Amino acid sequence: MRIPCPLCGPRDRREFYYYGAEDFAQRPEADAPPEAWDAHLHLRDNPAGRTRDLWYHEQGCAAWLVVERDTVTHEIFGAELVAERGARK
């Protein structure tokens, strides 16, 4: 599987570290109850099909990416920098 890094171009997925679903970046508030942190850290969906996931380009530019892909076919639909996504909000 090749991931299209916006900074480095298409790279082998072994250069990246997978962190899970895109919403993992939305952390609970610091004063949130322990149950909220437990859910954030341990209760994740495992969908089959199209997803948006966080990947860290560990052996490249050290950028955080949101990669849209299909977990069944491994097709990659695109990738964007997390920093740029946050700037558009």
Rank of each mutant, 00 (worst) to 15 (best):
Q26K: 11
Q26Y: 14
Q26H: 14
R27C: 13
R27K: 14
R27I: 05
R27T: 08
P28T: 00
P28Y: 01
P28K: 01
E29Q: 10
E29W: 09
E29K: 12
E29L: 13
A30S: 15
A30P: 11
A30I: 13
D31F: 09
D31W: 11
P33A: 02
P33I: 00
P33F: 05
P34A: 08
P34L: 03
P34Q: 03
E35Q: 05
E35L: 05
E35Y: 01
A36S: 12
W37R: 09
D38V: 03
D38Y: 15
D38C: 08
A39W: 06
A39E: 12
H40I: 00
L41R: 06
L41D: 11
L41C: 11
L41E: 09
L41K: 07
H42E: 05
H42Y: 15
H42I: 00
L43G: 03
L43C: 13
L43I: 06
R44Q: 07
R44K: 08
R44G: 08
D45F: 06
D45V: 03
A48Y: 12
A48R: 15
G49L: 07
G49E: 11
R50F: 01
R50N: 06
T51I: 03
T51F: 00
T51V: 04
T51W: 01
R52Q: 12
D53Y: 01
L54P: 13
L54H: 15
Y56C: 01
Y56L: 12
Y56N: 08
H57P: 03
E58M: 07
E58H: 14
Q59A: 14
Q59H: 15
Q59K: 15
G60A: 06
G60H: 04
C61E: 02
A62Q: 12
A62Y: 03
A62E: 12
A62C: 10
A63Q: 10
A63W: 01
A63C: 02
A63H: 05
W64T: 04
W64V: 01
W64M: 13
W64K: 08
L65A: 07
L65G: 10
L65K: 08
V66G: 01
V67K: 08
V67G: 09
V67N: 08
E68G: 07
E68Q: 15
E68V: 13
R69G: 05
R69M: 13
D70W: 01
T71C: 04
T71K: 05
T71P: 11
V72K: 12
V72S: 06
V72M: 07
T73C: 07
T73G: 08
T73M: 05
T73N: 04
H74L: 10
